[in-house]
Amino acid sequence: MNAEAKLKELGFELPPAPKPIGVYKPMLIVGNLAYLSGHGPMKPNKTLITGRLGLDMDVEAGYEAARLTGLGMLATLQSQLGSLDKVKRLVKLLGLVRCSDGFDKQPAVINGCSELFRDVFGEEAGVAARSALGTNSLPGGIAVEIEAIFEVEV
């Protein structure tokens, strides 16, 4: 099953690809690698999920924010490539979690994005090298920011 059909089967609809809020490109292709800039958790009404894990957000809310971020990343891929079926595999995922000092569940939060990509692209192509880091601040107070590198057909 192709990635776009799998996304529909899972009951997800991609939002419009987010627009840059600074001086950068949402995605840049070099050779056969697509580098996605950091994406945040944008809701369908175009507001961002803000908060701090371990203070005013729990792991479940952070997981949902990361999954929503993943959907935005997929929307960027689709808009830039024309189809998610041009994705060969996820190579690297970097997730940043805005959290309190004692919070240590960053991997569980970023699983919201990782599990989405696994479910859409499959175990082999959708699971990659990954880092999940905590930070005290992210732009606009967003709960998570995630960037990725994908191998794509060019």
Rank of each mutant, 00 (worst) to 15 (best):
M42L: 15
G134M: 11
S114P: 04
K46S: 14
L81D: 03
P44Q: 12
C113T: 12
G38M: 03
S100L: 09
A108P: 04
L68I: 13
K6T: 14
L116Y: 01
G38P: 02
K92Y: 15
F117G: 00
R118W: 07
G126R: 06
L7E: 03
N136S: 14
Y35D: 00
A129Y: 09
V152N: 00
L93A: 08
I149P: 01
G38R: 03
V144A: 09
R98S: 08
P107H: 13
G31P: 02
M27H: 01
L33K: 05
N136D: 15
G40W: 00
G31F: 05
V87Q: 04
L28A: 09
P18D: 06
L14D: 08
A5K: 08
N136Q: 14
T69Y: 00
S137Y: 11
E145I: 10
V97C: 07
A34V: 01
G141D: 09
E145R: 15
Q80S: 15
L55Q: 15
E123A: 12
G102A: 14
E153N: 13
F103Y: 15
I149H: 05
F12W: 09
L7H: 03
E145T: 13
V91A: 10
I21W: 09
K46C: 12
N2G: 06
H39F: 03
K105M: 15
Q80N: 15
G22D: 14
F12A: 04
G38D: 02
G62S: 09
L36S: 07
S79V: 06
P15R: 05
S137P: 04
I142C: 11
K86E: 13
V91G: 03
A34I: 01
R118C: 07
G134Q: 08
S114F: 00
G140E: 13
P41K: 06
A61F: 07
A66Y: 00
S131W: 11
P20Y: 04
E153A: 14
A132Q: 04
D85R: 08
R67K: 15
L81F: 00
G40Y: 00
S37V: 05
G40M: 04
D101H: 12
V127N: 10
L53P: 02
Y35G: 01
L55K: 15
R89L: 07
A143T: 11
I142N: 10
G112M: 08
L116F: 02
E9N: 10
G140Q: 12
V127T: 15
M42K: 06
S83R: 03
N32Q: 13
P20F: 04
A61P: 10
G51M: 09
G72M: 00
M73K: 13
A129H: 06
L77N: 01
Q78M: 08
R130N: 10
C99E: 04
K43T: 10
P139C: 12
E115W: 02
A129R: 05
V97L: 08
E145V: 13
P16H: 04
G54C: 07
S83M: 07
T50V: 14
S137M: 14
D104T: 15
E60G: 10
K25N: 08
V59R: 11
M73R: 11
L48P: 03
I142A: 09
G40N: 03
G82A: 09
K105Y: 11
E60F: 12
L7D: 03
S114G: 06
A17N: 11
A66K: 08
E123Y: 12
L7R: 02
C99W: 01
I142F: 09
D104P: 12
T76K: 05
K86Q: 13
A128E: 01
V97Q: 02
